[in-house]
Design a protein around this nucleic acid. Structure first.
Lengths: 191, 191
DNA sequence: CACCATATTGACTGACTAGTCAATTTACAG
DNA sequence: CTGTAAATTGACTAGTCAGTCAATATGGTG
């Protein structure tokens, strides 16, 4: 008989991600989560004291994953332009490879269900982006605009690119869309 | 002595907008809507057969309002650049003057609660934007990119600008942010 | 093997909710 | 007035849900 403890916790998180993105927070009963995850109702509340603690945990995890994915190979790049481009590539790649997690983040980023502390923690993971923008401005490669605005614009633009790319039919078309989208962002930012 | 008919329907819609943005769809009981609107539970279901029909009606209305606001004074502008700029100004102005409605649209644009027919109807109101982008491309003032992508990028960028502008302290700072945001969009789109 | 903390179960509870409906009120036309 | 159709009411129903808890199972340790 097997029981490497945390198995069920993982099953709950995985199932909750799917159901929350499909049906929303209030639209997903905890009873359905536990049923689909193959555990008893009590087990869910053994690992997560409340339903909110469950979505908070999910949010923190996914936000962390996304931030890590965006930084991949970043130290290989030299200039600010190249780094921003790499971040864009990484972000779009992560989003297209993890559509469920992307949808989850968009759906719950500004929602009431996620605690403010979890939201602030999530934001803080992307501070490196603001620093990079500042570096670009001081070096004269990036337009002199408000760094917070630049971060906000990058995030929303990437979301826009992904939205359009997800309706692309062929992989070639998708690549084309992504390329055009990243060009838009850079042309909007460059000095 | 009672009031003329449709008064209560308006009160219900207005209250529902506030509560839905504050608490979400499933987080807002119909009983609370009717209570806050000062009507009986039955009255709500007299005007809207279901809770979904209520949010659908709200969605259609607000989307229509937003589209109309964006077109204001559009025929006064000559070139594609000027028209796009005017649309940007209008969009940001409407969003900052109607924060509740803006939040509602962002929150429910891709949500399960709004019927797909209402969502499609909402999208169709913005087709003029795609035509304008096409015109710009054919005239050589706009970069040759996918028109759907351009629309998606404009919409998401404006959402990003509004998000950042809403945290501005002084009106002057807000104006500055908006100006920079619209420059970003145009520089990203121009040929 | 015996012990015990940890993990797991599912029936149960108290609170809440969307929507109904029979009764009542209002507005207004004739 | 009177008749009537639309508007309004709120108690009520049938169902749902988050979270509890006492009982049970598991797995590692000495």
């Amino acid at each position: 008989m097997r029981k490497p403890a945390k198995d069920k916790q993982e099953a709950i998180l995985k199932t909750a991600l799917t159901l929350f993105t499909e049906r929303g927070f209030f639209g997903t009963p905890t009873s359905l989560i536990s049923k689909e995850a193959g555990v008893a109702t009590g087990t869910l509340f053994f690992y997560f004291r409340t339903k909110e603690e469950l979505i908070d945990t999910l949010y923190r995890r996914i936000k962390g994953e996304a931030a890590a994915a965006m930084c991949r190979g970043l130290d290989k790049e030299k200039g600010v332009k190249e780094k921003l481009h790499r971040i864009g590539i990484n972000a779009v790649a992560w989003a297209t490879q993890n559509p469920e997690k992307m949808k989850f983040m968009e759906q719950f980023a500004h929602s009431q269900f996620v605690s403010t502390t979890a939201q602030e923690e999530g934001m803080s993971r992307f501070l490196f982006l603001k620093d990079l923008i500042r570096e670009g401005i001081s070096k004269g490669t990036v337009k002199d605009l408000d760094p917070d605005l630049a971060v906000s614009l990058m995030a929303s633009s990437i979301s826009g690119v992904v939205a359009r790319a997800s309706t692309a039919i062929t992989p070639a078309e998708r690549e084309e869309i992504i390329g055009q989208g990243l060009d838009f962002v850079w042309d909007g930012l460059k000095a």
